[in-house]
Design a protein around this nucleic acid. Structure first.
Lengths: 115, 115
DNA sequence: TTTATATGTAATATTTTTATTACATAATAT
DNA sequence: ATATTATGTAATAAAAATATTACATATAAA
């Protein structure tokens, strides 16, 4: 498993801190969907899906690309889940702060990336 | 590892979706602290710690109790981290929705517990 | 007696997240 | 032509999370 950083943990947890986003991830794990189709299936607005998918994409849990299907000249943006693994316990959490860097620096670094 | 539910996942991830809360958990893993002491150490307000610790407590990641120390009649409320483990990947996420219950029911159930 | 230590609540303000609504474009299908 | 399918942006509203400030209580220590 790839090295876990504080920022990565916080981003993934932020992404999974909402039940609709977890559901989206489960749906996108089976096959790729485009937003229009997803909005109909889940009976929610496209706009809210944009926001939730953006957060999942930021955490690296989903990805998307535009595709042209045969016989339909309309470009569709397909989203799919990316495989990931996360294992955490108290020791893992402690290790996040046991590598020279100070918490404050990491905190500030995270905020810089936000811009 | 205990059976993971959607609600439990969302609560834990919500708790870990903020870097200060992750830091708090790491600190409380080593020894128990009371809020006044923590506020000084971290140079943040007591009030903000109340809020963050409440969220960690709700997720079952920390616990607290009041204690009297020898030679000091002032009651102190000590917080400490509880051991936990969380393993997630795409299959685990999918499994959360593969047990008869529908997503909507779980979503609504979660909201009821909020009250 | 005043400052520091310790607890808690309540009110308010700020910021972020979440959700809704409206607009604009373009091809498809009826 | 008009409704449906598809994309995107922008404005706004509502709700939740985060942060600040103020108040109240009580003991310790100087």
């Amino acid at each position: 498993m790839e090295k876990l950083t504080l920022k990565k943990l916080v981003d993934i947890c932020d992404a999974l801190s909402n039940p609709l986003r977890v559901k989206l991830l489960a749906i996108l794990a089976d096959k790729e969907w485009y937003i229009y189709e997803l909005a109909k299936k889940l009976n929610v607005s496209r706009q809210i899906l944009y926001l939730h998918l953006k957060k999942l994409e930021k955490a690296g849990l989903v990805e998307s690309n535009y595709k042209l299907e045969e016989g339909d000249p309309r470009v569709k943006r397909f989203y799919r889940a990316k495989f990931f693994e996360l294992y955490i316990n108290l020791y893992v959490i402690k290790d996040l702060f046991r590598n020279g860097e100070k918490f404050d620096e990491k905190y500030i670094e995270k905020e810089r990336e936000e811009e």
